[in-house]
């Protein structure tokens, strides 16, 4: 089977544009999910009354439903409540809704890894609960959490592949369009796979490296 390189060159700008869009939405979505995850894990750790329950319900809802349905509900369903969001806003909110719970679990794992005696020695110098989280728990939890945060980033980046379903011109959407218009199936799919490899492979290799490094660079005490 020979490839139509001319076609590939002509479609390249489309893919480039789509890849940047994917990256932009993923970046914003991941950033938001980190924020949500951090807040949720702190609420769970502090056992803030009322909020704790809300956070637990959110985490279960988010983890046990597919992103596609979350997006459809946001994009098509909520307009009926008078809330109209642009495709891109929907995509970011959807990704953050999904990712927040995964990040929260990752942070929680890290927080639980901080030993009780560390916390007590923080308490004994008079740190408030929030100061304890800020200066003692999070910096230590973060190192432990790093590999799972990275894994979540890859997971969320992959999930962006369904953004095309709500009319966002991402890589999948471009591919589907090109297949429909030009029947250059093999070339378009080839570009699709290469595009995802370019985005995800370095990240995945970096993560493997990071994981090994964190494991060996444990804080000695």
């Amino acid at each position: 089977m020979s490839m139509n390189w001319e076609f590939i060159m002509s479609a390249l700008p489309l893919y480039e544009k789509a890849a940047w869009l994917t990256l932009k939405l993923a970046f914003l979505g991941i950033l938001a999910s980190l924020g949500i995850g951090l807040l949720c894990s702190i609420v769970l750790y502090q056992r803030t009354k009322g909020l704790e329950r809300l956070v637990r319900v959110y985490i279960e809802l988010s983890r046990n439903t597919p992103l596609l349905i979350q997006l459809f509900f946001l994009y098509y369903g909520l307009t009926k409540l008078g809330i109209t969001l642009s495709e891109q806003t929907c995509a970011i909110i959807g990704l953050a809704f999904l990712g927040g719970s995964y990040m929260a679990e990752a942070f929680r794992g890290g927080i639980e890894s901080v030993s009780k005696s560390q916390i007590e020695s923080g308490i004994s110098i008079g740190l408030s609960k929030l100061q304890l989280v800020r200066y003692v728990i999070l910096p230590q939890a973060f190192a432990v959490t790093l590999p799972s945060l990275g894994a979540n980033c890859i997971f969320l980046l992959k999930e962006t592949s369904i953004f095309g379903a709500i009319a966002i011109a991402d890589l999948m959407h471009v591919t589907q369009d090109l297949i429909g218009m030009y029947y250059q199936t093999f070339e378009t799919l080839f570009m699709l796979v290469v595009a995802y490899l370019i985005i995800l492979l370095p990240l995945s290799l970096f993560l493997t490296w990071l994981e090994r490094k964190v494991r060996y660079a444990e804080f000695g005490n």
Binding site: E60, L61, R63, N64, T65, P66, I69, Q70, F72, F73, Y76, G77, L78, T79, K80, L81
Partner: peptide, 24 residues
């Protein structure tokens, strides 16, 4: 039913939850 999408997608959301939650 102009509000159909809200209810239909809401239902599908819940259906998936009902299947996945007990498993997790």
């Amino acid at each position: 039913f102009p509000a159909a999408s809200f209810w239909i997608y809401g239902l599908i959301f819940i259906l998936y939850f009902i299947i996945c939650y007990p498993l997790s």
